[in-house]
Amino acid sequence: MTDQAAKAARFRALHERPEPFLLPNPWDAGTARLLAGLGFEALATTSLGVANLAGRTRVGRQEILDNCRTLSEATPLPVNADLENGFADDPVDAAKMIEAACASGVVGASIEDYTGDRRTPIYDFGLAVDRVRAAVEVARSLPLPFVLTARAENLLHGVNDLDDTIGRLQAFEEAGADVLYAPGLRTLADMRTVVSSVGKPVNVVMGFADPSITLEQLAEVGVRRVSIGGALSRIALKSFMDAARQMRGGRFGFVAELPPISELHEAFTRDE
């Protein structure tokens, strides 16, 4: 079994446990190594984090794939990829992104029903299902147990219709998706409703949820995977801006909170 296939098997097994696992989202090799050093079992890319890293609001297909390779090579952990909408509307063209991501080293990926057009943000139901079906077909053709996640993006883009969101997730499950994901769920009640409406593992992203919710509560409602999206990137940039504003004002109190350089060096060299 190749290293990537072994990672894929480990990643799939994490979804089969009765308790949820945490899936943090680094954006470069350094943050991936720091998270691995903290004992996380898997990692996920974040397209927002990649855009923040580039200093833009969006990044392109190749930048996403390059980041997939960077994170996959940074640690021994399995990596799941945020592939947005596959950078194509057509189901077959979008599904090609799954194969390209696998070639970049990841062992799982998500495909979403957000069009990228704010005027008509969500693909029509039939096209959204066809896109998932095409992505599943490609995922099943790969030489490893690739995990395909299907995302229903309604709640992030002004379509506050939980029934439609659940209907999409159910159709994505029927189309063969391994994991189901509706970013924007905020309450435990809504999370419980989604989990009880489908038969596949559900990912919840806490970057948009009630921050008082605990991992134990997520486990109680049946969530299997917990990610954070671009939240770690955003909080890192907030810390950077807060310190920079202090410096611009002629104050340097933030220096008292710096971690020892040796602590970072230890994290970065642990697996070398």
Rank of each mutant, 00 (worst) to 15 (best):
T2S: 15
Q4I: 09
A13T: 04
H15K: 10
P20D: 07
P20H: 02
F21E: 12
D28H: 07
A29G: 08
T31I: 13
T31Q: 11
R33F: 03
L35P: 06
G37H: 06
G39H: 06
G39S: 03
G49N: 01
A51L: 11
A54V: 09
E63C: 01
E63F: 02
L65C: 03
N67F: 02
R69M: 11
T70V: 12
L71C: 03
L77I: 12
P78N: 03
A81C: 04
E84G: 12
G86H: 10
D89T: 07
D89I: 02
I98T: 04
I98F: 02
A101N: 14
C102G: 07
S104Q: 09
G108N: 00
G108K: 00
A109L: 08
S110L: 06
I111V: 13
A128Q: 05
V129R: 03
S141H: 03
L148I: 09
A150Y: 15
R151H: 13
E153D: 15
H157A: 15
D161G: 09
L180V: 09
A182V: 02
P183G: 06
L185A: 08
R186H: 14
A189S: 11
V194N: 07
G199N: 02
A209T: 14
P211S: 05
P211M: 05
S212Y: 10
E216T: 10
Q217G: 14
V223T: 11
R234S: 11
M241Q: 09
A243E: 03
A243S: 04
R245E: 15
R248S: 11
V255Y: 03
A256G: 00
A256P: 00
E257W: 10
E263T: 15
H265R: 15
H265E: 13
